[in-house]
């Protein structure tokens, strides 16, 4: 089981600083969630962790190894994988080809066939649509494919950015069922999710990100009970 530590990360776009020293730790085999309003910097944090954005300051440690400066593909090779917001599928490739591309890391290639069978078990709809171009799938199917493609890489740490965005309530339930299943398999995960209620219910640990800084941290159960969280994020 792998752990990830983000230490005092600062980052942003161009001149605009978004993250002001955020620190997050993912316990091995645990599911961690980050809450925060729109524009708090959740996506920026994920993009910086994975290397799509350079970290201005601070470190990203994967099992105590400093991986801050590695490019996204090198991090994927080490098992640090992001299922990005808005799916970001290869729309001109078929469903099956998208999955094959997911298994690019060396440790995932040898077992590609078996992993494809596994994700088809999780998402039977994808099996039916495997020769179809990803761009022609429905929104829900595209989200399934994005998650399946992430799983194809045999991640050691899997991060989700708004996975339920645009999904029907039923598909959202299915999504969280799958996240629970992955959790039972002790996959280390980080979840950024608009559905705060459900995210807190499945998570072990939670952070609140406000204007680029972590303001609250604790076991998900405790964070859920906090007055401020109930007001700002749960609408209670």
């Amino acid at each position: 089981m792998t752990s990830l530590a983000v230490r005092s990360i600062e980052s942003g776009y161009g001149e605009v600083q978004i993250l002001w020293g955020a620190s997050v730790e993912l316990g091995p085999g645990k599911l961690t969630t980050i809450l925060g309003s729109n524009g708090a910097g959740k996506t920026t944090l994920l993009r910086t962790i994975v290397g799509l954005l350079p970290a201005w300051k601070g470190n990203v440690l994967l099992d105590d190894r400093d991986v801050t400066r590695l490019s996204p593909h090198e991090k994927a090779e080490l098992g640090l994988v992001l299922v990005p917001e808005g799916r970001q599928l290869f729309s001109t490739l078929t469903v099956l080809e998208n999955l094959e591309m997911g298994s690019t890391p060396k440790h995932a290639r040898a077992t590609m066939r078996a992993t494809i069978d596994q994700v088809f078990g999780l998402f039977p709809r994808l099996a039916e649509r495997q020769t179809q171009l990803a761009g022609t799938l429905s929104g829900g199917e595209q989200q399934m494919l994005a998650i399946a493609r992430g799983l194809m890489s045999k991640p050691r740490i899997l991060m989700f950015d708004e996975p339920s965005l645009g999904l029907s309530p039923l598909l959202t339930m299915n999504l969280f069922e799958i996240i629970r299943r992955l959790k039972r398999e002790s996959l280390t995960m980080l979840l950024v999710e608009q559905n705060v209620q459900m995210a807190l219910a499945v998570s072990d640990h939670a952070y609140v990100l406000e204007r680029g800084r972590i303001t609250i941290e604790g076991p998900a159960r405790e964070v859920r009970g906090m007055e401020q969280v109930r007001k700002s994020y749960l609408g209670l």
């Binding site: 799509l52 994988v81 599928l89 290869f90 729309s91």
Partner: peptide, 12 residues
């Protein structure tokens, strides 16, 4: 098709 997504999947 999508360079950033390709990087995320481990493609150099």
């Amino acid at each position: 098709n999508n360079r950033a997504a390709a990087e995320l999947m481990g493609i150099d």
